[in-house]
Design a protein around this nucleic acid. Structure first.
Lengths: 123, 123, 123, 123
DNA sequence: GTGGTCTAGACCACT
DNA sequence: GTGGTCTAGACCACT
């Protein structure tokens, strides 16, 4: 597992879990991977994973049943889709701001992005 | 000045200066704002600005003359444009990866982004 | 610990660590003293030690693992010996230049140095 | 004129003047170069040269006659030679300490230095 | 006035 | 307990 080093690990972990939930990987009240399992799989210290889980709990993305692990909070499909859109639009807004900082107006941005996608297909 | 809190301040400062140079705001050997001035304007501790400047120096974006100030390293226009494109494409790639994490394939991404731009015009 | 006052502390600290590595005090990936420990032992501000360590990191003499410590970069013995010789020859060259500035030609210098060593034995 | 960047400029300037006096370049009460002239020749800010001169005055290496420049303090030949030896022995002692830091005992040092001189003749 | 160094101390991320 | 970041403030070197 690759992580960026300009952002705290536990935030990146939490973001990935959120993305997976929103994507639909953990429908209903599915069990999410135990701390130790994820820590082992991603080669991260269990304390760091635990911290990410605590954050997800506090934001109500997951719930824990004592002695029985963590479970994704049941999410209606429309709520899930809205959450997905919001996460995505945050990214869009960041891109827009970054591009503006580089002197590229919104009008040119979409064309530039399209070109990028054409030049880097599928993968 | 607004800063995100999930990334070290000095990195965000350095990124903005890089963007400004790459955008063409500091051509030739133009003087960039003195540490104290920027610190005051952005309401940041001078040491933090100085740390950002030190990073930029180590990456050769700027050079400092003690008692005189910091100066943008002269950059040929084509180099500058290439740097701009690279910074932008890094952002594109990040967006692509984030979208994939949310279960949105590249094919849909462009349309979603176009819609976003239409819904959030001008600003 | 004694330091000269005509050179920044953090450079003197970095030089001593380099010397110790090159001398063989930290073979393989040995842990070097934690920032706080060295700061306490040498009665220096931890930030200053940290600055020296950052310099050593940027020059790849050591690597740091957050929450764990700093480790000497593994160095092949021949590389280590070459580095040692280079550091030493820099000192020799400085002495040569200083002596020339004082009007003592290289021919006389060696004899003067030998006399000095005879007059200041052992210690 | 080349200067090291790990030591304040004004100290390096003062050291060179001292060396020149001790070497015999300014016998009797010879006039030493005016601040502006030296500043121009060595491409240094006059204020920095002036600071070096002030240090030399405070240590009595030179004296100033108002409106008439700076003059080397007359120095008996034996005093001059002793000063030269002292400056040189300070350098020797530093080399000894640096070598010890690199794990080279005094016994080996002289041989290493001799080899260095043989390999870097005359220049 | 400008950048560089150093100290002091708080708090965070990670092990 | 360990390194990293940030703030605050003093003082120095240089222009």
């Amino acid at each position: 597992m690759e992580f960026r080093k300009d952002e705290p690990l536990y935030l990146q972990i939490a973001d990935r879990i959120k993305a997976a939930i929103v994507k639909g990987d953990y429908p209903g009240g599915t069990r999410i991977p135990p701390v130790r399992e994820l820590a082992l799989a991603w080669r991260i210290n269990p304390n760091t994973v635990a911290k990410a889980y605590r954050l997800l709990q506090s934001e109500n993305w997951i719930g824990s049943r004592i002695g029985d692990g963590n479970y994704a909070t049941p999410l209606a499909d429309d709520v899930r889709h809205r959450a997905r859109r919001e996460l995505l639009e945050t990214k869009f807004a960041e891109l827009l701001a970054d591009a503006a900082g580089l002197g590229m107006p919104a009008e040119e941005l979409e064309a530039a992005f399209r070109q990028f996608l054409e030049r880097n297909p599928s993968r």
